[in-house]
Design a binder for these strands. Structure first.
Length: 417
RNA sequence: GUGGGUGUAGUCAAGCGGUUAAGACACAGGGUUGUGGCUCCUGCACUCGUGGGUUCGAAUCCCAUCACCCACCCCA
């Protein structure tokens, strides 16, 4: 147990970390071009934030949060998602006083108590963006377009964009009635949780995990078919914008976001190449979240993108991720005098911007060359008594196996080439 | 929460009730008392996830347990 990471967590090892850095860098660059600014919020928040923001009838809040009491008797929860904390910071620091809309991005770990499987972990990582302060469907199209372009810039193709509208509180109330009506004579068959949901939030019944509920819900009416005029117009606006941007999509009325705060636009980028958990990126609009947690009436729209799933997808489609460069110089030193000299030389080279390494395990010359080879050194500098006496070193080009004597004062110059 | 699969060295893996648990890669050392990648040699599991049981005898059969993987569901 001591030497085992907790279930559902993964170490990102030194040999793999360049992949993370790569996608994060590409994301940061995209954010810069799309003019999104990074925001960093705490790993944990007051539990109440998520109960209110995500919704206390959601699976996430009901059974997936890592919640604990701290020593000051506060109920604390590890972030299960990225949007609520950003909204909290936006309200707390009155960022709505800045020029609007506000555009933020973040790269964060999220925590949900789930049963792990391919593409689903208990600690996972998201890159996300949020746009606060505009109702205009241009923002929704921008957010979707961002995701689409970012994914494309990684070389990812064959992702399917699915969009839907899940309405606003107004039309949703109507829809709830339609749904209650549909479920009325099925009520007795529902599980206990869903009996409670029937009054509070019948939409949640649609994604209950109980098999009996699943069966009862077959053939239920779609939200998309019961939108109010405003939402209907918004959805058609969105489609027009996406068409204008030449972004392909399919309308999927089955998309029901598992977070209560979503309104109107809901979308997903889905792959069929990484197993059952195919949603690489998901998001939508949340017009009342900010007031819901005590802020002004400011609408928002954004997405979350799963880094682990992104990497799974890139691996599945055999996309090349540029690896870090090799070692420039290995210093093979023989004898104490040479080692002292090498230590100083290594430091000078490093300070000069050159990637340099030497042996610290007391390997013999052959071992040191072998080590240099393993490190993929471009050059190996050999320093021994002979060289020191003559004020030279040997520099060997590891690719061509050619070697030459170089005066000590010319090392830097020689290595630069 | 429900179901399925797998567990032999760092990794991949043979073994399928009977003397010392194949092999490959990796790793370490050596073949030259100052030169790598190739090659050759040597070393590297008192033990087969763990705990019980059956048996003269178990990595091999049974039970339990744990871990990992996958799927349902949900989502990133």
């Amino acid at each position: 147990m001591l030497t085992k990471a907790p279930k559902g967590t993964k170490d990102i090892l030194p040999g793999q970390v360049y992949k993370w850095q790569y996608v994060e860098n590409v994301f940061r660059e995209a954010c810069s071009r799309y003019v999104f600014k990074e925001i960093r919020t705490p790993v944990f928040e007051h539990t109440e934030l998520f109960a209110r923001g995500v919704g206390d009838t959601t699976d996430i809040v009901e059974k997936q949060m890592y919640t604990f009491e701290d020593y000051g008797k506060r109920s604390i929860t590890l972030k299960p998602e990225g949007t609520s904390p950003v909204v909290r910071a936006f309200v707390e620091h009155k960022l709505y006083a800045d020029v609007q809309p506000s555009k933020y991005f973040y790269i964060i770990p999220c925590f949900r108590y789930e049963k792990p499987q391919s593409g689903r972990l208990r600690e996972f990582h998201q890159m996300g963006i949020e746009v606060f302060g505009t109702n205009n469907m241009m923002a929704d199209a921008e957010v979707i377009g961002f995701a689409s372009d970012f994914l494309a810039s990684l070389g990812i193709k064959e992702l399917e964009l699915r969009i839907n509208s899940i309405g606003c509180p107004k039309c949703r109330e109507t829809y709830r009635e339609v749904l209650r009506d549909f479920l009325k004579d099925k009520y007795d068959g529902l599980c206990d949780t869903c009996k409670g949901r029937y009054d509070r939030n019948p939409m949640r019944i649609l994604d209950c995990k109980s098999e009996t509920c699943q069966a009862l819900v077959q053939g239920a009416p779609y939200m998309l078919d019961h939108l109010c005029d405003e939402c209907k117009d918004a959805f058609s606006d969105l489609k027009t914008n996406l068409d204008a941007m030449e972004i392909e999509y399919i309308v999927d009325p089955g998309i029901v976001r598992g977070l209560d705060y979503y309104t109107k636009t809901a979308f997903e980028f889905v792959s069929n190449k990484i197993g059952a958990q195919g949603t690489v990126c998901g998001g939508g609009r949340y017009d009342h979240l900010i007031e819901q947690i005590g802020g002004p009436e400011v609408p928002g729209v954004g997405f979350g993108l799963g880094i682990e799933r992104l990497l799974l997808l890139m691996e599945a489609t055999e996309l090349e991720i540029p690896e870090q460069e090799n070692l420039d110089v290995f210093i093979a030193a023989l004898g104490d005098r040479a080692k002292k000299y090498g230590l100083k030389l290594m430091r000078d080279l490093r300070n000069d911007g050159i990637k340099a390494e030497m042996d610290s395990l007391g390997r013999n010359i052959k071992g040191q060359f072998k080590y240099a080879d393993r490190l993929h050194a471009k050059y190996t500098i050999v320093i021994g008594d002979d060289e020191l006496d003559q004020n030279t070193v040997s520099i060997k080009d590891m690719r061509t196996s050619t070697q030459k004597q170089v005066p000590i004062e010319d090392i830097q110059k020689e290595v630069r080439e």
